[in-house]
């Protein structure tokens, strides 16, 4: 024990006195959010009840077209939240607000996360090839493949069942 502290039995800080808000991807359908507010922010809120909103962002660009997908009034002393039943392959951002008279004041926004896709890509993006950095070939480069996705799916057991 040094400095009056046992460095093998330490505890975590209760508070960081800072505004933090971070979204993390859990899986293709759910997100975890944690937040904390500095003492001054809590003082300003003056006991107003907080609301948490989750937006699904436009695929094109962020903007007023973003869709509010979930909104929850937060119980007191809540510092985190799970959002479930979301769409894979979409982007999301969360926001904490509070009610003042007849308007919702936004206090903090989180980072943006992109949920992974839940299935193979079905679009028509062009197939491109590139070299791996720093690898010196010992043979001739591979030719472009001459097999269609349909042929692949029909012959390789791993892909069977993929519609």
């Amino acid at each position: 024990m040094v400095m009056g502290v046992d460095i093998d039995r330490l505890e975590l800080p209760k508070w960081y006195d800072d505004n933090l808000m971070t979204l993390l991807v859990v899986n293709q359908n759910s997100i975890y959010l944690y937040w904390e507010m500095c003492f001054e922010q809590w003082r300003i809120l003056n006991g107003n009840r907080l609301v948490i909103n989750l937006y699904e962002l436009n695929s094109d660009a962020e903007g007023p077209g973003n869709r509010l997908v979930q909104s929850h009034t937060l119980p007191p002393f809540t510092g985190d939240w799970y959002f479930y039943n979301l769409q894979p392959d979409r982007r999301y951002q969360a926001e904490i607000c509070y009610q003042q008279n007849d308007r919702l004041i936004s206090i903090m926004k989180s980072n943006i996360v992109a949920l992974p896709p839940a299935e193979p890509y079905r679009g028509s993006r062009k197939v491109e090839w590139r070299s791996v950095e720093g690898i010196n070939a010992i043979g001739t480069p591979a030719k472009e493949p001459n097999v269609t996705m349909k042929e692949l799916v029909n012959t390789m057991s791993f892909y069977m069942g993929i519609k």
């Binding site: 193979p120 890509y121 993006r125 090839w129 590139r130 493949p145 390789m156 892909y159």
Partner: peptide
């Protein structure tokens, strides 16, 4: 689930944009 779908499946490596 990569984009675009790998033509060789898991039977060959793929390459990210950064090489």
């Amino acid at each position: 689930n990569s984009c675009p779908a790998p033509v060789y499946g898991v039977f060959a490596p793929v390459c990210t944009r950064t090489g």
